[in-house]
Write a protein that binds this DNA or RNA. Structure first.
Length: 504
RNA sequence: GGUGCGGUAGCCAAGCGGUUAGGCACCGGUUUGCAAAACCGGCACACGUGGGUUCAAAUCCCAUCCGCACCUCCA
């Protein structure tokens, strides 16, 4: 029997069993990016977290509707577009496309819906009208519309603060148009000259928070299962979403609120304002996208992750990513070993090598049960490590079984079964989604380029060494290896064949 | 001032009341012409500090120190 899925709910500050409102169908809304710049690793972490959630739930056999919005209307976009002398919507559409590619690159599935603010002005305006009609919001003479925070008794229930606490340390600017300093804009008047849309209150743009309520309701309904984002969205963004949504629809908005922890650099949060952010794109010059994902999954999603940046002379290296990438190398290597053994054999968990068979038999259940415990990805990765070790063990033993055809056949089928289990274990994690030769080719290409090496000249050296070895000229052979080692190339002698790789 | 998150062996990181996950590094071994890779074994009987509860605490309670974040836009 499978264990229930338990997830941490920011609202209740405790683990809760996932009980979809519609049995068998989980509806998830994730706050996506504001499209004015490249996605940084913090975005990658949050998105990877929710990607694992979606993949995992699907692997459990649940139907998932996953919505991730695109904030394509925002002041930052307006300013950036102005700098670039580009139309703001054209600019944000372009950046949305870039960001999509960046997230896809780190293994995130394309959401079922990616609604944009610019395509949902009607929904937004209608929602604001409904809020005004209920006296939950008010229009000021400049044409702005504010949500009246005091009218929503439960304001603060997500971030666990109350209005008075907020006021004491609040750095909110005095604004006499607002009834309460914490009231937030639903609609911002933009004047005739600047970017905006017509509305009953004049030309303007929606405030940041209202879009999510409108778009979540459009694609998931006014009440749905899981709403997520980074921890920095708890207040005020998600708090405000709850206020405006529940004020108008009168029922709980999202049932479960999940928040991913920060990615820190030198223990400080990676953020645009601190200027310490590293984009996904930056990292791709030195590391494989799978390394990024593996790196994130190595820690629980709610805790902080420290991202190290080290300068070695001219080069910038990311030690955490290097370590992760070495592990990904190891996993692909183990898979590759299985592939070579398995051929087209029918998968079967044969007990020819009991220790190996037992790891293969239990791996998937172990991964799924780890993920069921509030997405315990570190434990899931440990299972992957066990699986890889078992695969290598199998590769080591299989040769010895050759003289016993029946047992050899069993080992071959076990390898095929191992491959299948590998796939079942890595799919919910979004890891190892390409064939190992694809991975090896792309990492090798990148590492060669990084070191200014080319494969042909390495192959030539290797051939020369092989000739020396056949003539038992070990002094020459070792000299060549030392030379290559100095360049960062590692030689691997398998019987008479010599391969090479460039380790991290 | 308020509200959260975190402090686990050299490093990263699970565990959150009772059989010490895992990884990196390091040290032996198998293997190899020598290496590498792979495998086997050793690795640390660690849990910020001080009290308390309990037969039993890294895990619960109280106090306290340190780091970070949020309360303005931020994933």
């Amino acid at each position: 029997m499978v264990s229930p899925v338990r997830l941490y709910n920011t609202l209740s500050q405790s683990l809760e069993p996932l009980e979809p409102l519609e049995p068998g169908h989980v509806r998830i809304y994730l706050c996506g990016l504001t499209t004015y710049d490249h996605a940084h690793l913090g975005h990658a972490r949050t998105n990877s977290t929710f990607d694992v959630l979606v993949r995992f739930l699907r692997a459990r056999g649940l139907r998932v509707t996953f919505v991730r919005n695109v904030t394509d209307v925002d002041d930052k976009i307006l300013h950036r577009a102005a700098e670039l002398c580009e139309d703001p919507l054209t600019f944000s559409a372009r950046m949305a496309h870039v960001n999509d590619g960046e997230l896809k690159c780190v293994g995130c599935l394309v959401p079922d819906h990616e609604p944009r603010v610019s395509g949902h002005l009607d929904d937004i305006v209608r929602l604001i009208e409904a809020l005004i009609a209920r006296d939950a919001a008010y229009v000021v003479d400049t044409g702005d519309v504010y949500f009246a925070v005091r009218g929503f008794a439960e304001y603060g229930k997500l971030s666990h603060r109350n209005l008075d606490d907020l006021r004491v340390g609040a750095r909110v600017e005095a604004d006499d148009r607002k009834r309460d300093p914490l009231d937030f804009a639903l609609w911002k008047a933009s004047g005739d000259q600047t970017w905006g849309w017509p509305s009953p209150w004049g030309r303007g743009r929606p405030g940041w928070h209202i879009e999510c309520s409108a778009m979540a309701a459009r694609y998931l309904g006014e009440h749905f299962d899981i709403h997520g984002g980074g921890m920095d969205l708890i207040f005020p963004h998600h708090e405000n979403e709850i206020a405006q949504s529940e004020a108008v629809w009168g029922a709980p908005f999202a049932k479960l609120w999940m928040h991913a922890g920060f990615l820190n650099v030198d223990t400080e949060k990676m953020s645009k304002s601190l200027g310490n952010f590293v984009t996904i794109r930056d990292v791709l010059a030195t590391n494989d996208p799978e390394a990024i994902r593996y790196f994130f999954l190595g820690a629980h999603y709610r805790g902080p992750i420290d991202f190290d940046v080290e300068r070695r002379g001219e080069r910038v290296v990311f030690p955490g990513l290097d370590e992760a990438e070495a592990r990904v190398d190891y996993l692909y290597g183990a898979c590759d070993a299985l592939t070579r053994i398995a051929g087209n054999a029918e998968p079967e968990v044969s007990d020819v090598i009991p220790g190996v068979a037992s790891v293969i038999r239990n791996a998937e259940a172990r991964v799924l049960s780890a993920l069921a415990k509030d997405l315990n990805t570190p434990v899931a990765l440990a299972v992957l490590g066990d699986l890889a070790k078992a695969a290598n063990e199998l590769a080591l033993q299989v040769g010895k079984l050759k003289k016993d055809p029946k047992r050899y056949e069993g080992a071959v089928r076990l390898a095929a079964a191992g491959l299948e289990v590998f796939r079942r274990c890595t799919t919910p994690l979004g890891l190892m989604q390409v064939a190992s030769d694809v991975y090896v080719a792309r990492t090798r290409g990148r590492r060669l380029a990084q070191r200014g090496l080319d494969a042909a000249s390495i192959d030539a050296k290797v051939e020369e060494r092989t000739r020396a070895r056949t003539q038992k000229d070990f002094a020459r052979s070792d000299a060549i290896r030392a030379e290559l080692t100095g360049l960062g190339v590692e030689l691997l002698d398998f019987g008479g064949v010599t391969g090479w790789k460039i380790p991290l």
